[in-house]
Design a protein around this nucleic acid. Structure first.
Lengths: 168, 168
DNA sequence: TTATTCTTTCATTATATTTTGAAAGTTCGA
DNA sequence: TCGAACTTTCAAAATATAATGAAAGAATAA
């Protein structure tokens, strides 16, 4: 398989993966493109490679930066901004985990905690069923929260460890 | 908080959670409704509770059954079909994990394996960058696959333990 | 300051997804 | 076999999401 073909297929696959995960397709495609490019790209290069508009490019690059997956790079002597993606896939994964936890798990845990305070007699089977469900989901959510938190930390401590090695 | 209000809020929250996860909102809402109801519901009851059409109800209940999250229940003396959701949230989680792995992880791993065979000289930095990216993502994917597989296999309190072993 | 180059915004347009509901299909008792 | 009760299908309509591109905004060099 030729490089160009492989690259295109990777971008397209990563794109539909992103779509399934609630991240929009273009955002995932830009990420894929930057992942496999050795050097930072300008907005125009991204537009050209993916055949998308300037506005679309700008919006999705900004979003990738918000997620912490992409960074602006200033090239000396160049007026334009360039963009590059974090290449270490473990960092990418913890980054995504952190962001999704913040956006998805944390809010639902807040709601679940409120819902535990539902009024009513334990004798009423509807009340009992509701309480039981919420209780179990809540327990599960706490477990998940712990797991994700330690996953996120594992990367941080790995990073910290590496950094220490460099300075020692 | 009254039961009816709490129930409505839970259904709405579970619904938007589902939407973020690529599962459609109505499907998640039906799931939420069945999760908190002590007894099986008929299609008509679901329609009424959620204010949705017959076709929509049918389609999404069927999809929930495909996922293994909901079951048909035959009530003696009743012509209609009734539906009930798996209440054990751990089983629900493994069920979802199994389904998502099948639909998302497995296909991308297939593509990644093909993409490792890209042609070109290692000296070309574009080829090198591409190979490195794919290689790392592939390694990560295999690790993830193992984790999910063992999560699916074990039915008890495992996730935390398993994950920790892998990252240590 | 002004012209130039690049970035950002956002109303409009395009695309994709979901929902509806009526019609067709199925099942079952009599 | 018929008809009532229920389920499924699917084309059309409604809704939600994403992309475009022209215009406005910033930054820089001259």
């Amino acid at each position: 398989m030729k490089l160009a073909e492989a690259k295109a297929q990777f971008i397209q696959t990563w794109g539909s993966l992103g779509a399934q995960w609630g991240i929009n397709r273009t955002m995932a495609q830009i990420h894929a493109l930057l992942l496999v490019m050795p050097d930072p790209l300008s907005a125009d290069e991204i537009m050209q490679e993916l055949n998308i508009s300037r506005g679309n490019t700008n919006m999705n690059v900004r979003e990738l930066i918000n997620w912490g997956l992409v960074e602006k790079v200033l090239v000396p002597g160049e007026r334009r901004e360039f963009f590059t993606a974090e290449k270490d896939i473990w960092k990418v994964a913890t980054c995504i985990a952190r962001e999704r936890k913040k956006r998805e798990l944390d809010p639902i845990m807040k709601v679940l905690n409120q819902l535990q305070e539902v009024e009513g007699e334990q004798k009423d089977k509807h009340v009992k069923a509701f309480r039981d469900s919420i209780h179990n989901i809540n327990k599960f959510a706490h477990q998940t929260d712990k797991t994700i938190t330690s996953f996120i930390r594992s990367e941080e401590s790995w990073f910290y460890g590496t950094l220490m090695k460099i300075f020692k």
